[in-house]
Design a protein around this nucleic acid. Structure first.
Length: 269
DNA sequence: ACTATGTCCTGCGAGC
DNA sequence: TGCTCGCAGGACATAG
């Protein structure tokens, strides 16, 4: 599922291939679940707009658009199974394609999302605000302050996009393992040292994952249709019963915040 | 003001 | 072999 490193990889790929290009026409499928803004409004905003910039904010892809009608932003959240592909027009349109933007260069940007947890919207210029802090930009003091006085499990807090934007199930588990903190620990119970370890673990995991092009665990591919490789470096995620890479104890799986959660019962306190 | 839980959706794999 | 069923989970609604 696309979390910060996957979305970063996709946004970089899109940026490289569509910046400066102009959307000449837009097709939107009849399944409207993935749309947060009305289909008509999305089509009208994209149609004829030039893509000035593509970037990642939290887990969303933000397209800065310029057109004779003014500036706007196209916001794409990939949900669990969303893909943004840059494709030649002759490439067969795969099932669950919800939007196709045809570009002046001849290429197409396609939004594909089988499970339809993804969301598309358009907002006025500068209309989009990230809910929480960027995990890779935040300082250690502000980071630690986010968890103070919170009774919720630390894993739930990591998944809360209003605190930090971009961490999902994979990177929450991997970060907690590296920080040697159990996912069910109450956030407020973490010591200063543990919070510091967690801060560095989050940065390390996210940066390593970006370098590997993200994790391909379900059907994630980047804008060019290429998978990522960070799943090969997962130390706990989906390794239930396998030996911990540090102490050989079998990795445990429990449910926290309704999510499958993996940890080492010996290394993580 | 927080926190916990159910819901949306389709594809896939386990189990019979 | 072929079927059914349950699970996967990001964000939000709703309940407590």
């Amino acid at each position: 599922m696309p979390e910060l490193p996957e979305v970063e990889t996709i946004a970089r790929g899109l940026s490289k291939r569509v910046t400066g290009d102009t959307i000449e026409s837009v097709w939107i499928g009849s399944r409207h679940q993935p749309l947060k803004s009305p289909a008509q409004e999305i089509a009208a905003t994209l149609d004829g707009a030039t893509i000035a910039r593509v970037r990642r904010v939290g887990k969303q892809i933000v397209f800065d658009l310029e057109s004779p009608r003014g500036r706007a932003q196209w916001i794409v959240h990939l949900g669990m199974t969303g893909k943004m592909l840059v494709a030649p027009p002759e490439l067969p349109v795969e099932k669950h394609t919800h939007l196709i933007a045809r570009l002046a260069s001849g290429r197409e940007v396609r939004f594909v999302d089988p499970r339809m947890f993804g969301k598309l919207s358009v907002v006025p210029e500068h209309g989009f605000r990230a809910a929480g802090e960027e995990p890779l930009d935040v300082g250690v003091e502000l980071f630690a302050g986010l968890f103070r006085r919170r009774k919720t499990p630390i894993k739930s807090a990591l998944l809360n996009q209003k605190l930090l934007s971009g961490i999902g199930n994979i990177y929450a588990d991997e970060s907690l393992f590296r920080a040697r903190v159990r996912p069910r620990r109450r956030a407020a119970s973490l010591t200063r040292d543990e919070l510091k370890r967690l801060y560095h673990a989050v940065q390390e995991v996210l940066n390593e994952a970006i370098a590997a092009g993200g994790s391909s665990v379900s059907d994630y591919v980047d804008a060019e249709g290429e998978p990522g490789f960070f799943q090969l470096q997962h130390r706990v995620y989906q390794r239930t019963g396998e030996p911990c890479l540090v102490c050989r104890a079998p990795i445990k799986r429990v449910i926290v915040a309704g999510r499958g959660t993996h940890y080492c019962p010996r290394c993580q306190k």
